[in-house]
């Protein structure tokens, strides 16, 4: 069980949205994490490597900054099944870049732009994710 946190989740979501708006305002780019992280890997097609790296460093530093500012430790429960997490990582990395976006690029930015492609992508990844959890938790 995890606690249902509507207000914190709404507030955190609003911050994510604000971050997406700021990236568009300053850089004119979609705040899609698979796009930003994926373009740190070859083949390189444009400049902007250092800016993307800075974004990812900010992302990685966030729990430390949050913990430092609030004094509250960030809690989480991550599976320690290494083989499954490697498989999950491969699928997430490949699928998100192959499909040009993940939860942030298609889910947040794409839906906000009323993009039909992103709506299709979001419905598809939600469907396969719901199905996967159903199978792993209730069938297997």
């Amino acid at each position: 069980m995890t606690e249902f946190t509507p207000l914190a989740s709404l507030a955190g979501g609003a911050l994510i949205g604000l971050s997406a708006v700021l990236l568009m305002a300053f850089e004119g780019r979609i705040a899609g994490i698979s796009g930003i992280a994926g373009r740190l890997l070859p083949p390189y097609e444009d400049a902007g490597f250092r800016s993307r790296l800075a974004f990812v460093i900010g992302l990685i530093a966030a729990p430390l900054a949050y913990g430092f500012a609030t004094g509250a430790p960030v809690t989480q429960t991550v599976s320690s099944n290494v083989a499954m997490m490697v498989a999950a990582g491969l699928l997430v990395g490949f699928g998100s870049v192959y499909g040009n976006g993940c939860t942030s690029g298609h889910g947040v930015c794409g839906l906000s732009r009323l993009s039909a492609r992103s709506l299709v992508a979001t419905i598809v990844f939600m469907a396969t994710a719901f199905f996967t959890v159903f199978v792993t938790r209730h069938v297997l």
Partner: peptide, 26 residues
């Protein structure tokens, strides 16, 4: 690609509970 990519991504997301942003943050 807009069907296959998200389908594969969703399976991985459902297995690990991580999408790219939260994975990097964690």
């Amino acid at each position: 690609r807009i069907l296959i990519g998200p389908a594969i991504f969703g399976i991985g997301w459902g297995l690990g509970g991580f999408c790219p942003g939260p994975a990097l943050t964690a």
